[in-house]
Design a protein around this nucleic acid. Structure first.
Ligand SMILES: [Mn+2]
Ligand SMILES: [Mn+2]
Ligand SMILES: [Zn+2]
Ligand SMILES: [Zn+2]
Lengths: 157, 157
DNA sequence: GTCGTTGCTGCAACATGTTGCGATAACAGC
DNA sequence: GCTGTTATCGCAACATGTTGCAGCAACGAC
């Protein structure tokens, strides 16, 4: 009997912190939020908003999109997730973002790459010094033609 | 009589070039495209896609969104317009883009500023040299906190 | 355990595009 | 002017979110 407890307790512990932080802001711990956090716990890397709605529905089919998106807003406020935008401007969420990073996307092949902090360091510093503008690096998505697509384009032209 | 001709001819001339370029690609000159070009001729600076649908409908109420957006794609292919994305990821069109330029947007106040070419020159050069990635500067939108909102944030904290 | 406050949910409507498809019409050739 | 080819149109359905609102329920207080 007690042999099964630890797993459940570990899951409880994982959520206890979130619950505490919600309560500290006067916000509430609801079944819907628990389900979304369960989904997020199983995510590695990036997920789109639609995908999160989908996965949440697999656990609880009564889930509605508005609740999911509103909860994601709340969790972003807590720093548990962050979002940027993919090719069609769709939301892409990062779970437990370790370090801020932007993305490079190529509409030609649909490819996507993470941007290392030092690749945008000068841009960030330049805009801060020149305009007092603080770039949201984790929200940054730069579109353009990747090396492979550029080569293919040259061959065609 | 002939005194009224020039204006009409000027308008005809303005479109003759577009028509010619469409035909050169095997594409067609239709009443719907003429109306959209009439709308675009009256635009200075940026417009959202929804706004273009709206204005086109004011000239021809039977206009449908799909035709407007598909025509905008075609005109973008001709280089007559280009688009980037605003705060909510919505399309913003530039008419007759003189020089490529990106944008800075601040979710705090909704402000938007144009990016001078030299402000992104190093970023563009760095990604080209380091990855062979060619940034679409006219599509670039950088989100962050503007100087005014940063000051307001400091005061609050 | 009950109560009151108020944050949260689910619904319905809406906003902004996108896509598949059958009917229409622009254009070149005659 | 006709005719044939095929790009384009309009419609309907869909994708991805967002927002207003009325009722529900999480939570702290007692
Ligand atoms: Mn965003
Ligand atoms: Mn785009
Ligand atoms: Zn590519
Ligand atoms: Zn601002």
């Amino acid at each position: 009997m007690t042999g099964q407890r630890p797993a459940a307790e570990r899951a409880t512990d994982r959520w206890a912190d979130v619950r505490r932080r919600l309560r500290a802001r006067g916000l509430r711990w609801t079944p819907q939020r628990r389900v979304l956090l369960e989904v997020l716990a199983g995510v590695d890397g990036h997920v789109t908003g639609a995908e999160l709605v989908e996965r949440t529905r697999r656990i609880d089919p009564t889930t509605t999109p508005s609740t999911v998106y509103r909860t994601l807003d709340v969790l972003e406020g807590l720093g548990l997730v962050s979002h940027s935008h993919g090719l069609e401007g769709r939301q892409e969420f990062h779970v437990n973002p370790r370090a801020d990073h932007g993305h490079l996307v190529c509409p030609g092949c649909g490819g996507s790459w993470e941007l290392a902090p030092d690749e945008v360091a000068e841009l960030v510093a330049g805009l801060r010094d020149g305009r007092g503008f603080e770039v949201a690096v984790d929200h940054l998505t730069i579109e353009g033609r990747c090396a492979d697509c550029a080569r293919a384009g040259m061959a065609r032209a």
